[in-house]
């Protein structure tokens, strides 16, 4: 549904988006993950036809975003980062306006349907200026869905709303995946992990990694991460001991134990157990640490910054 090829956006010499390529299949929920300024919003704006790419191309539902902009726009529902609303319109008037503008047949019924789905139906006569932030977010979502587009693009839909509402929005987005292709941006890893079928991590306009949360975790876990708890040794002594073991790259105190990162090799755990016992200490706990996406992400970013 979404096919991005070498999409770039440069402002002078600064590349906001740098040769980005990815695909999203029908019914997939794809998360664009990256820190602020990574190029997520720019990418989405290019895909929705709001701004043109400097180079590269993208097709949505088979239509080129530049040459068939109108066809693309017909098939995309878009929620910009800052939900744009007309404060002096009613909820219903607002949704119906977008429905009409996008040529929805039977706009009234569709409006009610979509308002029902975001739980705003009972507030349909309310002026938007009187809505809470979370309600506005849901209103924005309703706006993006009212014409039942095959592709939905959501730019940080959970930003700035309270936790309870964040959960609601995430559930809504998750549910969208059943019928729509969703491209969804966030800078919160756990969110991407929860919501997305696939995550694309970008920074400085470039893709750092992409895949399902599980494969990403697998692929990117660069070596073994272990949790080791030793009794009978001082913290410093324990750390020194562990660091001397072959293959261990980093030892960090974690709680009452240590987080050990090491290159992957055979019999690492055996060696650790052996050395601890040889030194006359007791091995209380030795278990692998499952890294969260967050860890991977920070890891990746850290490596990039260093490079």
């Amino acid at each position: 549904m979404i096919d991005v090829q070498n999409l770039s956006k440069t402002y002078g010499t600064f590349a906001a988006v740098d040769r980005l390529s990815f695909k999203a299949e029908a019914g997939e929920v794809v998360g664009l993950l990256g820190p602020n300024g990574a190029g997520k919003t720019t990418t989405m704006r290019m895909l929705t036809g709001f701004m043109p790419p400097s180079a590269g191309s993208a097709r949505i539902a088979g239509y080129d975003i530049l040459n068939d902009s109108l066809e693309v726009r017909r098939r995309v529902g878009y929620l910009p980062e800052r939900v744009p609303v007309y404060p002096d319109m009613t909820v219903q008037g607002y949704i119906q306006f977008w429905a009409n503008l996008r040529g929805v047949r039977d706009a009234r019924r569709q409006t009610e349907r979509v308002l029902e789905s975001v739980h705003l139906l009972e507030r349909r006569k309310t002026l938007i200026r009187n809505l809470s932030k979370g309600m506005r977010q849901r209103l924005g979502l309703a706006q993006a869905l009212v014409h039942d587009p095959p592709v939905v693009i959501l730019d940080e839909p959970t930003i700035g709303i309270d936790p309870q509402q964040v959960i609601e929005v995430r559930q809504s987005v998750r549910a969208l995946g059943e019928k729509h292709t969703v491209l969804f941006s966030t800078h919160i890893l756990s969110e991407a992990e929860q919501v997305c079928d696939r995550v694309i991590i970008i920074n400085h306009g470039r893709i750092l990694a992409q895949g399902t949360p599980a494969t990403l975790r697998q692929q990117l876990q660069p070596g073994d991460h272990l949790y080791v708890q030793i009794s009978g040794a001082s913290s410093a002594a324990g750390q020194r001991l562990l660091a001397e073991i072959e293959g261990v790259q980093q030892v960090q105190p974690q709680g009452i134990g240590f987080h050990v990162r090491a290159a992957v090799r055979a019999n690492l755990r055996g060696d650790i157990a052996q050395r601890v016992v040889q030194a006359g200490y007791q091995l209380e706990e030795l278990r692998p640490v499952a890294m969260t996406l967050e860890d991977i992400f920070l890891d990746l970013l850290g490596r990039e910054e260093g490079a």
Partner: peptide, 14 residues
């Protein structure tokens, strides 16, 4: 200013 132009321009209208 309000950002609604972004929505308008991404709607399928000229």
């Amino acid at each position: 200013r309000e950002g609604t132009l972004e929505l308008l321009l991404t709607a399928p209208v000229s």
